[in-house]
Design a protein around this nucleic acid. Structure first.
Lengths: 195, 195
DNA sequence: GCGCAGATTGACGCTGTGTCAAGCGATTCC
DNA sequence: GGAATCGCTTGACACAGCGTCAATCTGCGC
């Protein structure tokens, strides 16, 4: 891959990100992206096999820009399990709004597009690992509700922190981001921590 | 509308329901439905303006068959607020699996199709009313967590009981329907009821 | 100057939705 | 018994958007 290749590729990714962020939402077409990148529609296919792959690459690109790993890692330094849980929710819940514009079109084709599903599931598995780590920390402290297995607690938390739930509460119920975070914190605490 | 018209319409609705139930999922095409109904593809358009409208009509049709209103109403006879909450979760949570095959393709076009969004939102508003009633009953008993307003509690419950959450826990986490119900019951109790 | 990589251009195939016009059989109306 | 009407069929078509292909162009390394 030459420097030029990398440059074009980058421009395409930025164009995709910007197109998605510009509010068009799920209706962003390959032709739109190409125009925005100042490149022919066919050039997109020289760099990405199809639309799904391009979307996936774009989420990864944005993840790197935003340094999501570092954000999620921050919760690791928490002193207690309960604090770690809170820090993780804060980190992930605060990150959702940033990736949501990218996530939306991906979710829109989730059912019909194998590549999109694969990519989304892959990212969500990473979130689940974060959930599992927080639950493990709780368990170590003896703070995990005794009636919950670690697996069930992880899945419970994972579900609470889903992007779909964020959409539901943020837009369906019209909660502010701040309120969303506060409510989910409270909910997770009550759901996972033993009395 | 003649008897024959009604008959054809009914056959189309049944064919749509069956096609959706037969596992094809969201990928059911107009042509498939027509073939199954033993009718020309164009006949579908004589009865329904477009695909979304047909899907919407099918969910209504199934709702009537299943008598969803009666199911949800059953919770109304509960003696206490807490029992009413439990009965409502049981009724709605138990109904989701039945309508899910119909709901899936509707949700798939939710973003792009106004009619579908309208219809789905309408049905979900009905669920929210059920949530609000359960929360009101809790409040009357003085069992609602004091830090929650009735509205927030309603939205919280509404979110927990969303179809997306059911999908997440049922398929993402691979919980059984029984486990889903038990977990959501526990979660709702802890989330809404004051100590 | 040669050759190749990266990009462009323009055309095409495909799928699935929705539209249109002509026609056909059964029922109804007088 | 003929005409009008209704419900449906048949076959063709337009359109959007994705993905593909072949031919061509441009610029760089050597």
């Amino acid at each position: 891959m030459s420097e030029k290749t990398q440059d074009t590729r980058r421009r395409i990714l930025e164009a995709t990100r910007d197109a998605l962020l510009s509010g068009e939402g799920a209706g962003v077409r390959m032709a739109d992206i190409a125009r925005r990148a100042g490149v022919s529609r066919q050039a997109l296919y020289l760099h990405f096999a199809n639309r799904a792959e391009l979307l996936v690459a774009t989420t990864r690109f944005v993840d790197e820009e935003q340094d999501v790993d570092a954000r999620l890692a921050a919760s690791r330094s928490a002193a207690s399990g309960r604090e770690r849980l809170a820090r993780f929710i804060e980190a992930w819940g605060g990150y959702i709004p940033e990736i949501h514009p990218m996530a939306r079109p991906l979710l829109a084709v989730y059912e019909t597009d194998d590549a999109a599903r694969e990519a989304w599931d892959d990212r969500m598995r990473a979130v689940r690992e974060g959930c599992a780590a927080a639950v493990a920390a709780l368990e170590t402290d003896g703070d995990l509700a005794p009636e919950l297995s670690a697996k069930d607690a992880t899945d419970l938390l994972w579900g609470l922190l889903s992007v779909r739930n964020w959409e539901q509460w943020r837009f369906g119920a019209r909660w502010s981001q701040k309120k969303y975070l506060a409510m989910v914190q409270r909910l997770a605490e009550r759901a996972l921590v033993g009395e």
